[in-house]
């Protein structure tokens, strides 16, 4: 069995993002880390590997420049078997459409993939589109918002998962191969182990270019993207206000508070 985890490198969630007048986004000298949502996907892949006595192979891939190595190293230090960076200058400025194309081509090249795991979205762009697009391109079963893998039947080639939806939980069964978008709560990601850290710093991380995976140049990068950035600007600063409710008794204060919350349609 072969599991692939797709990861992305993002600025640390504690980073202070700034946007200058020209629309350049900066997060200062904040470190680049593995997208925090992806840690759930990595953990789930390792849990599956452990459940099947270490038999499944877990490959982590990331499309990105040299900085993407941080995400790969983190995943290897957690327990993934190998890491591959997919990058080409032609992949610059890819939107989700172009990104999913490149990732799907890389997964196709591996040939024997049964499961592809993603975090629910990336904390920088927050689109959550890539897992669905990759599933569509590969013809794999798309299973998003997965909070639990109920059953993985390797011989029967099916997977049963619980999805966390706004309306409640939904249990679905789908044929393998499948793409899974994980959500927070599916597990508690482990810290990298010291042995894992040593492995991660000594591992080789091959780079697959567009030519290596058969990418058509006009389908990747800005050329292959449907989204155009017209203007980038910081959102207006939200003005907060506080009001102290004065009343003779706590009950009276609570009643006034409830009225106000209802008037504002908060409750």
């Amino acid at each position: 069995m072969h599991i692939v985890v797709c990861t992305k490198q993002t600025p640390d969630s504690a980073a202070k993002l700034t946007v200058d007048e020209a629309g350049n986004v900066s997060w200062g000298d904040s470190p680049i880390i593995i997208n925090p949502w992806d840690e759930y996907a990595v953990e789930e892949a390792i849990l599956i590997k452990e459940r099947f006595n270490g038999e499944p192979k877990v490959t982590v891939i990331s499309m990105g420049p040299e900085e993407a190595l941080e995400a790969l190293k983190h995943a290897i230090a957690m327990g993934c078997d190998e890491g591959i960076r997919v990058w080409d200058e032609a992949f610059e400025n890819s939107d989700t459409l172009a990104t999913s194309y490149v990732l799907a081509k890389a997964i196709e090249k591996m040939g024997d993939v049964d499961l592809v795991l993603f975090g629910k979205s990336a904390i920088d762009s927050q689109t959550g589109q890539v897992p669905i697009e990759v599933a569509r391109r590969l013809g794999f079963s798309p299973l998003t918002y997965v909070i639990k893998i109920v059953e993985l039947d390797i011989e029967g080639r099916t997977i049963t998962v619980e999805r966390l939806l706004e309306q409640g939980r939904q249990v679905v069964k789908a044929p393998l191969p499948a793409v899974i978008g994980t959500v927070k709560g599916i597990n508690e990601p482990r810290y990298p182990s010291f042995m894992g850290i040593r492995k991660a710093t000594r591992a080789q991380y091959p780079v697959w270019t567009g030519a290596d995976i058969g990418v058509e140049p006009d389908k990747a990068g800005a050329a292959g993207s449907g989204v155009r950035w017209e203007r980038i600007f910081p959102p207006p600063v939200r003005e907060g206000g506080a009001e102290i409710i004065e009343a003779d008794t706590p009950e009276e204060a609570a009643r006034i508070l409830v009225d106000k919350l209802m008037a504002e349609k908060v409750i």
Binding site: Y191, P192, A200
Partner: peptide
């Protein structure tokens, strides 16, 4: 610091 050192720092910091 080596790559290993940096990863140790991150791991211990995350835990703490």
């Amino acid at each position: 610091l080596t790559e290993e050192h940096k990863m140790v720092v991150r791991m211990v910091r995350d835990f703490a």
